[in-house]
């Protein structure tokens, strides 16, 4: 058995982004909150990685560390590496990182209304990307902004380019966020719950648009969500996070068919399903741990129906998952002492 390590950095066509053993902690009044505790993941061009997990599991903090927008202080990165195209971004100067942001890696946030500047027109905010990074004139930048708005299918882009964020609907605002991320055709987009704040009816439209643009530009995409339903259609692989660790990784459809971690199983069981109509919905009992006092051993043990003594003392490593006969299951890993029982059980 080997510790899962997707290291392919030595291969020329390696992953775009590779996070290795990333740790992030926040120094708060109640002590040190260990928000991220050794995350490993990678994304290649054209690939979509979905990051899944309950609130507070460290999905956004990991993304912010990649983006270089963590609040430091109170945040701190005591350990870890974040390779972008083979270079550790944590070793770069502020200016080097700034040039990556927006141009190479872009981010889409959950709440477009608060994430857009309320007093600047959307045309200004889109055009700013071209003016600052490409040195275009105001006029050229405006023309490019209109193109972008067309690109994300905002009706009457030419008339609306000077409007302000509050004058758009929620779905249209999120399209503007997508347009802004897309402006300089980055290699990687991180979308942090891009549809959570939207009406159910427009969620699918926005998600489809994002997936379509990603295919077209052959970008890597990290899609953070706690909605398992959204993930199935668009993601290639999934990383499930719990208390700042990745507890399971798998190609998307395999995860749904055969989870190899009790936490993932709990998440899947709590999705409402048509054939179970009328039955009471399953919910994982208990609450996520306080990050200043993460339980010893497996962080999930107080809530796990399969927990044994060893779970309370030893942290399970993320190990590769195999078939009963030992055949490798590519891309699959589980951080559970009893993964075999869980997947084959």
């Amino acid at each position: 058995m080997t510790i899962i390590d997707n290291t392919t950095a030595d291969v020329p066509s390696g992953p775009l982004l590779e996070v290795r053993d990333l740790h992030v902690e926040f120094h708060t009044r109640d002590g040190v909150a260990k928000a991220v505790n050794g995350v490993n993941y990678s994304v290649s061009a054209g690939e979509t990685l979905a990051v899944l997990g309950e609130s507070g599991s460290g999905k956004s903090v990991t993304a912010q560390a990649v983006m270089g927008i963590l609040d430091m202080p109170p945040g701190r990165i005591p350990r870890g590496e974040i390779f972008f195209r083979g270079q550790d971004m944590l070793k770069m100067s502020n200016e080097e990182r700034r040039l990556i942001r927006g141009q190479k890696i872009a981010m889409i946030f959950q709440d477009a209304l608060s994430s857009l500047n309320p007093v600047l027109s959307v045309g200004y905010q889109l055009g700013e990307m071209f003016r600052v990074h490409l040195g275009l004139s105001k006029k050229e930048a405006k023309a490019r902004s209109i193109e972008l708005m067309d690109r994300v299918r905002i009706p009457a882009a030419r008339e609306r380019v000077n409007d302000y964020p509050h004058q758009f609907s929620g779905g249209m605002r999120q399209r503007i966020m997508i347009a802004m991320a897309l402006a300089l055709e980055p290699d990687l987009i991180i979308a942090d719950e891009p549809t959570t704040a939207l009406d159910v009816t427009v969620q699918a439209q926005v998600m489809d648009l994002l997936a379509e643009l990603q295919r077209e530009y052959h970008m890597g995409l990290i899609l953070i969500t706690h909605d398992l339903g959204v993930v199935a259609d668009v993601a290639d692989k999934i990383a499930v996070m719990y208390a700042g660790r990745i507890v399971e990784t798998a190609p998307v459809h395999e995860l749904y068919k055969r989870p190899a971690h009790p936490y993932t199983r709990g998440l899947l069981d709590s999705i409402p399903r048509l054939d179970q109509k009328g039955q009471e919905l399953y919910a994982i009992k208990g609450l996520p741990p306080n990050l200043t006092r993460i339980p010893a051993g497996c962080a999930f043990n107080p809530r796990c129906p399969a927990a044994q003594d060893i779970c309370r003392t030893e942290i399970p490593a993320l190990l590769s998952v195999t078939e009963r006969d030992g055949t490798e299951l590519p891309g699959r890993g589980s951080a559970c002492h009893f993964w075999k029982e869980t997947i084959h059980g």
Binding site: M67, G68, I69, R98, L99, I100, R101, G102, Q103, A106, M107, F109, D111, S114, S115, L116, N117, P118, V119, L120, E128, M129, V132, H133, M180
Partner: peptide
């Protein structure tokens, strides 16, 4: 949140402060 966006856009600090922060 919009300040976080401004940083994520890769804008230089003086622009983030001078335009985005000050206007508001």
């Amino acid at each position: 949140d919009y300040m976080r966006t401004a940083v994520a856009k890769g804008l230089p600090r003086r622009r983030i402060i001078g335009v985005h922060l000050m206007r508001n």
